[in-house]
Amino acid sequence: MAYSEKVIDHYSDPRNVGSLDKSDENVGTGLVGAPECGDVMKLQIQVDPVSKEIIDAKFKTFGCGSAIASSSLATEWVKGKSIDEAMSIQNTEIVEELSLPPVKIHCSVLAEDAIKAAISDYKSRNED
């Protein structure tokens, strides 16, 4: 599947929409916003207490379409990663055809910020 088709898929049929139990100590919650246009995104991760691997991720985004698409992509991407790997999220996607539509500037960082916020929330609750 071409890169952009894959992304379209994430908008038309966003994966991982919903919530995890906020009070669960293995859950980290990140809430971020883009004030330029009033977008708000909540992203949650659930971490396996033994392996420190992210075993589930959910999001809820109120905002423009590409913010929703990127939240969906981000939650797919972090699943199965260790929290350290997820922290160094990078766009190293290899694409053959390098001509793609652009993204809104704030959308490109929103999902990344949300993951980082969720991880730091998880870490702050598991400091011992």
């Binding site: 890169y3 766009n91 996607e93 694409v95 390098l98 001509s99 793609l100 539509p101 652009p102 490109s108």
Partner: peptide, 13 residues
């Protein structure tokens, strides 16, 4: 706007 992928040399408008 900006790009979402590294080393993108062409942008579709």
């Amino acid at each position: 706007f900006t790009t979402n992928v590294d080393d993108q040399t062409s942008i579709d408008v």
